[in-house]
């Protein structure tokens, strides 16, 4: 007993550090801080100015929202490659509703309060489509969402004939800009954290991802869980499309290119296992911020396309390799 008391008294800074390090998100947090410091040094402070940090936050909120949805999918060992296709469809629908493009069935420009729910609904509906194909027909999510991605871009092209849609109402600009955009991102992430940690649905997601068979045997409706995670991912993709539209104040086919890759990278860097059932939302947020910092630094440092592609590819492969090697070491 005396010993225990003594031990407790000897809680030093080192112990705290050790406990913090053992926490699963510590490595990524430290990596993020180190990266910001190093990139700040390389760019001679250009990346750590207040204006640029604000930029990173705004850019990260689009990616981060998509990553939150993607994380639900990956936690169940599924993938959603359709993120950018679904997002761009929502973007084109919303922006043509708010202007007087022909796709607008109202005949007059809709207010953002009508367009935003429509964008989210489109996202969720397309998520439901992939979700039902995956859960009811047992089709591999990779291929289904790859196909849905194509269809999404096809529809977006068809609606707009490939042209950008400009001249959105001024009042729409607020959603993607500084205070609101990141606030939306962080609240979505907080909500997702709450759902995954404290609700029955969250338990089901982890269980279905850890082992679908034993989840099924213990009475979990695995199919409906799959369906729901894809709907969530679609909803988040629609939200990401909305944020991007507001940020650029235009709807453009190219605006979301590569979002699925970025969102998967954020999730993977955030420590979510690609094999399902392992990971948490805080890691995903940190992962999205890390990708945001890297992307932003590459453009501040005027890195060419070649470097950008290679760095991104290396980050993705490296993060997954680290995940696998870490688990093998245990």
């Amino acid at each position: 007993m005396a010993e225990v008391v003594e031990r407790r008294e000897r809680v030093t800074f080192r112990d705290i550090a050790r406990r913090a390090l053992r926490h699963e998100n510590a490595v990524i947090g430290i990596a993020l801080a180190a990266l910001i410091a190093v990139l700040g040094g390389i760019s001679r402070g250009a990346t750590v100015t207040r204006g640029n940090m604000a930029n990173v936050l705004i850019q990260s909120s689009v990616r981060g929202v998509a990553a939150v949805g993607q994380a639900f999918c990956i936690l169940t060992a599924n993938f959603d490659l359709s993120v950018s296709g679904v997002g761009v469809m929502a973007m084109m629908l919303g922006s043509s509703m708010m202007t007087t493009e022909w796709a607008n069935i109202l005949g007059y420009p809709a207010s953002p309060f009508l367009a935003i729910p429509a964008m989210l609904a489109v996202g969720a509906a397309w998520g439901l489509l992939s979700g039902s194909l995956v859960s009811r027909f047992n089709m591999p999510s990779l291929i289904v969402t790859f196909g849905v991605w194509q269809i999404g871009y096809g529809v977006a092209y068809y609606v707009t004939e490939g042209k950008a849609i400009m001249e959105l109402p001024e009042s729409f600009a607020v959603y993607g800009s500084l205070p609101v955009g990141p606030i939306i991102f962080f609240s979505v992430a907080a909500l997702a954290y709450f759902v995954l940690t404290y609700t029955r649905f969250g338990r089901r997601v982890y269980a279905a991802g850890g082992s679908p068979v034993s989840a099924y045997l213990s009475g979990i409706n695995v199919k409906n869980t799959y369906l729901t995670v894809f709907a969530i991912s679609g909803l988040c993709a629609g939200l990401a499309g909305m944020l991007m539209t507001s940020r650029g104040m235009s709807g453009s086919i190219e605006a979301l290119r590569g979002l699925e890759l970025d969102s998967i990278a954020s999730v993977v860097i955030g420590g979510v296992s690609l094999f399902g059932g392992r990971g948490n939302m805080i890691g995903v947020v940190l992962g999205a911020l890390l990708i945001g910092v890297v992307n932003n630094a590459m453009s501040v440092l005027h890195m060419g396309h070649a470097g950008r592609y290679i760095v991104k590819g290396a980050i993705i492969i490296g993060a997954v390799a680290a995940d696998i090697l870490r688990r093998r070491g245990r």
């Binding site: 990779l142 998967i264 592609y309 492969i317």
Partner: peptide, 16 residues
């Protein structure tokens, strides 16, 4: 590494 991730990363690298 799952083939899908390894080759997706390789797509980026080769493109770069």
């Amino acid at each position: 590494i799952p083939p899908f991730i390894a080759t997706l990363g390789m797509w980026q690298v080769a493109h770069g």
